[in-house]
């Protein structure tokens, strides 16, 4: 049984805003993957109000007769829609929940491409995942689909339209689902009960030279590989300039107060580095923009518009 209905879809306000921003700021249509986790929760929302409990018991809502399945979207990947979906994501802390499609000025209905993509995602067993706190061995397909669109007419107030669906294989239908937007604040405290501040260290591809160089040697690297590693290391060292561990040690302990000047010096250097980094980003962004414009011209040429 891998076609369980998902009762709740949660998404943090920032994640949704970020997806919407991607669509709004992109010149064309985009699509991408939705990452997160699905968990069972057996907690029954107790209420002082007797009527409401009576209501939920009498109604045949699935929440009443079993644990609820909640999907939480924590992350996403997005690319322009003429590229295929990047299905190899390497984020071990989250699973592929589904995907989203953002189209400019279109009706909010799954299109031909949307349904074929969802179907093929759901039918491929390699994308199936096991939900957290699952009592039985269970594998679920990445059946979520989020559809976003911009309004047909330009309006003074920007509005974004979106609709979330779960594709159900048994009925071959896209069931509309509501999106719970989770924000930070007192009224959302309960959502953070199970929050654990564990974040995976980003996987870096560069080699760390050091004590375990022996282990590296065993891999019998090619000369090119070693050279590249050295170059990466040099770049890393450049970034860490002035922050040698030995120096940082001085800031610890009883006589740390004597090193205020040292600390300020470090701080200044950090600011300078940040500043230069910001400039670098600015420069590269303008290069990216330049390249984008160039690409656009080429695409126009292809389309015969020049």
């Amino acid at each position: 049984m891998n076609d369980l209905p998902i009762h709740k879809i949660q998404i943090s306000g920032t994640t949704l805003a970020s997806i919407l921003h991607r669509l709004f700021s992109s010149s064309g249509d985009i699509h991408g993957l939705l990452l997160g986790h699905v968990s069972f929760s057996t907690t029954i929302s107790l209420s002082d109000d007797n009527y409401s409990t009576a209501d939920s018991a009498s109604s045949s809502s699935p929440a009443a007769d079993g644990p609820t399945l909640t999907a939480t979207i924590t992350d996403f990947l997005s690319i322009p829609c003429h590229f295929p979906l990047p299905l190899q994501h390497n984020n071990p802390s989250s699973v592929l929940l589904g995907w989203f499609s953002g189209r400019q000025k279109t009706p909010l209905r799954p299109s031909l491409k949307d349904s074929t993509t969802t179907l093929s995602l759901c039918s491929s067993a390699s994308y199936h995942f096991t939900p957290q706190n699952s009592l039985h061995p269970l594998s679920l397909p990445p059946s979520l689909f989020l559809l976003l669109s911009s309004p047909f007419h330009e309006q003074l107030i920007h509005t974004h339209e979106y609709k979330a669906f779960q594709y159900r294989n048994s009925t071959d239908s896209f069931d509309p689902k509501s999106l719970d937007i989770i924000n930070i604040g007192p009224s959302f405290r309960s959502h953070y009960d199970s929050f654990s501040p564990i974040s995976p260290f980003p996987s870096m591809t560069c080699d760390l030279r050091g004590p375990n160089a022996m282990a590296e040697d065993e891999k019998a690297e090619t000369l090119v590989g070693i050279k590249r590693g050295l170059k990466d290391q040099k770049e890393l060292d450049l970034c860490a300039e002035g922050f040698e561990i030995g120096r940082l040690n001085k800031l610890m302990g009883s006589d740390a107060s004597n090193y205020t000047a040292e600390l300020e010096h470090l701080y200044d250097k950090m600011l300078v580095k940040l500043d230069s980094l910001a400039r670098l980003v600015e420069k590269s962004s303008s290069k990216v923009l330049e390249q984008e414009n160039h690409n656009m011209k080429l695409r126009y040429k292809v389309a015969g518009l020049e």
């Binding site: 279109t106 009706p107 949307d114 389309a303």
Partner: peptide
């Protein structure tokens, strides 16, 4: 509705069917 993408002139179009034909696959 036929949805082309002028920005990506070589990309395939997409089709959105009528609201009552949601199950047409």
């Amino acid at each position: 509705d036929v949805i082309y993408n002028a920005l990506y002139p070589l990309a395939a179009p997409d089709v959105i069917f009528g609201a009552e034909d949601e199950k047409f696959r």
